[in-house]
Simulated assay, not measured.
Amino acid sequence: MSIVYTLVRYLKDDDYPDSTTDVTAVGGQAWAELMATPLEQLVYVYPLTQEHAERVRQLTGITLDLETYEYFLEPEEDGSR
């Protein structure tokens, strides 16, 4: 089983994603450490907060604009692999 990790951005108070970025290359273990969750339990949607912002930037090069957007890490099983 292969997991795809996606960083999803929503305008605040909006229900539809503004953008999605595949961040699978960072690796599940790095995301598990950031979310303080064992890798095998990293299966839910996780909101990214100011607490996560600097590490997300280090891992992905993406700067979180938390004034304008809400961000989520969304792991899901990749059915194509």
Rank of each mutant, 00 (worst) to 15 (best):
L59I: 07
T60R: 04
E76T: 04
T68M: 05
E51M: 07
L42M: 12
D22G: 04
E40V: 13
Q50W: 07
F72I: 00
P17D: 10
V26H: 05
T24L: 06
T60M: 11
Y16N: 11
P17Y: 09
S2G: 03
E67W: 01
T24A: 13
M35P: 06
E54W: 01
G28M: 08
V23F: 02
E33W: 00
T68F: 08
E33I: 08
P47V: 05
L48Y: 07
D13L: 12
D18C: 07
Y69T: 10
D15N: 15
A53C: 01
L7K: 02
D14K: 06
L34V: 07
E67M: 02
L48D: 10
Q41H: 14
A36E: 13
Q58T: 02
Y5K: 00
P47C: 05
T37C: 14
D65I: 07
W31N: 05
A32F: 05
D78F: 00
M1K: 02
A25P: 08
G61E: 09
Q29C: 05
D13H: 08
L34W: 00
Q41P: 00
A25C: 11
I62G: 04
R55F: 01
I62V: 15
Y10N: 08
T21W: 04
V43G: 12
A32G: 11
D14S: 14
F72G: 03
G28E: 12
D13N: 11
P75V: 03
L42H: 08
L7I: 10
H52L: 03
R55E: 12
E77T: 03
T49L: 04
Q58H: 06
Q50A: 10
V8D: 01
L59F: 14
Q29M: 15
E67F: 02
P47W: 09
V45I: 11
E51K: 14
Q50V: 01
T49A: 13
L48F: 02
D65G: 13
P47F: 06
R57K: 15
A25G: 12
T68I: 08
Y44A: 15
F72A: 14
Y16T: 07
E40I: 09
A32T: 09
L66N: 09
P47D: 11
L48W: 06
G27Y: 08
L39I: 03
E74V: 13
Q50D: 03
Q50N: 03
L11A: 05
G61Y: 13
L42V: 08
V56F: 10
G79A: 03
T6H: 07
D78E: 04
V8M: 07
P17K: 11
E51V: 03
S2F: 06
L48G: 06
V43E: 06
H52I: 12
E70H: 09
A32Q: 08
T63G: 15
G28S: 15
H52K: 07
E54M: 04
L48N: 13
L34E: 09
G79F: 00
L7M: 03
Q41R: 09
